[in-house]
Design a protein around this nucleic acid. Structure first.
Length: 303
DNA sequence: CTCCAGGCATGAG
DNA sequence: CTCATGCATGGA
């Protein structure tokens, strides 16, 4: 397990003092922190108040609070020196023109009926391995329970971080998780029957010499690789593509999105997943994953 | 207390 | 190929 070296921590302190909040100007009226963090794409953010969160991202603890078009951010501890503004900008994908994407979707009258006028949801740029394990755990599970299982995984197999929000832990590396015993995964983390999947995926990825190079693979190839993993079906693979590899054309179809697509485009029918995928690709194209997030959020909230 | 969840692997037809 | 079934667990 990785241990922070004192010298590196000292460098981090000098470059990025813990208590130096920054104000970042964000795209006007095209981002909603709360909606984005509560949209089911991430599991490790803790809500402090309305529009105010803290969480562990990679090896750093972040505090974020949205006030209109400003984002107040703070580095709350961590292992690596970072340029906070750049880090936040990349993580929340503020370079993406989500208003333009949404505007195009809204030409579809059915979609426009269930989507907001202003962009609110961004697709976060999360670590692939964290997304992979998180969505293997997500299968046939509740979101609150997914969150608690992940926190237990991090506490057991991640590295501790000193924070002003209490104890926090990084998401485990493939190598650390590959060492986990099945018995511990089940009894201490509460993984249930998914214990074998998590261990298998961790060991497979730890043994992948070129996991880092997967980001270069074409989406179709990457999807094939993911589907070979234990406990990874089409839905989980598409979640990893979308949330972990930022392949915005990926369109994960879960129970909510299935209901949404059926109600909007196949009323009274029972379409196959293939048909729904084709329909999404046709209507939403290269940014189908963004549309998927709006559909998921809308249909989950009205149920 | 019971119910059921951002599905998946497996086996039968 | 399509479809039914079992699945561990704990939050609601």
């Amino acid at each position: 397990m990785r241990v922070m070296s004192p010298s590196r921590a000292a460098v981090a302190e000098i470059l990025q003092p813990m208590n130096s909040p920054q104000e970042l100007v964000i795209p006007s009226g095209e981002f909603d922190l709360e909606q984005t963090l509560e949209s089911g794409q991430c599991f490790r953010w803790q809500r402090l108040a309305a529009g105010e969160y803290w969480g562990v991202v990679s090896n750093d603890v972040l505090y974020v609070k949205q006030e209109g078009d400003q984002l107040q951010v703070q580095h709350g501890g961590g292992t690596a020196p970072i340029n906070l503004a750049d880090f936040i900008h990349r993580y929340f994908d503020f370079s993406g023109d989500y208003q333009a994407i949404l505007r195009r979707f809204r030409r579809d009258r059915s979609f426009a009926h269930v989507a907001p006028r202003r962009a609110s949801l961004h697709i976060l740029r999360q670590a692939p391995f964290e997304v992979l394990i998180s969505f293997v755990i997500s299968a046939n599970n509740h979101i609150p329970r997914i969150r608690s299982i992940i926190e237990r995984l991090c506490r057991l197999y991640g590295s501790p971080l000193a924070t002003s929000f209490g104890p926090a832990y990084t998401f485990p590396t493939p190598e650390a998780l590959a060492q986990a015993q099945l018995e511990d995964l089940r009894s201490k983390c509460g993984l249930g029957y998914r214990d074998g999947y998590v261990q298998s995926v961790a060991r497979t990825m730890a043994a992948q010499p070129d996991f880092g190079a997967w980001v270069e693979l074409p989406t179709a190839t990457l999807r094939q690789r993911l589907l070979q993993l234990d406990g990874v079906g089409e839905k989980v693979a598409d979640c990893v593509l979308l949330f972990g590899f930022h392949r915005l054309a990926a369109f994960p179809i879960d129970t909510w999105v299935r209901r949404a697509m059926t109600e909007l485009y196949f009323p009274g029918q029972t379409p196959r997943l293939r048909e729904l995928q084709a329909c999404a690709a046709r209507r939403f194209g290269a940014y189908a994953g963004v549309a998927q997030q709006y559909l998921f959020t809308h249909y989950r909230s009205i149920s």
